[in-house]
Amino acid sequence: MFRELMQTAGLQMWAEIGLVAFCVAFGAVVAYVLHMTPKEASDAARIPLEDEEVTR
């Protein structure tokens, strides 16, 4: 009975909204990544190693 009640409550839309929201967000992140140049990525990746260079 509970299943029937939930199925008629129109709640599937919430799940669909969630999936669409994820796809949009994921697409935006991938677009960001594809627009990065190799140098930008390389510079960022080296940030943790930089503090060794400046330590006295």
Binding site: A44, A45, L49
Partner: peptide
């Protein structure tokens, strides 16, 4: 003593 393999992958 190596930079992270892929910064782009870390964003994703």
């Amino acid at each position: 003593n190596r930079p992270v393999f892929s910064y782009k992958l870390s964003i994703v």
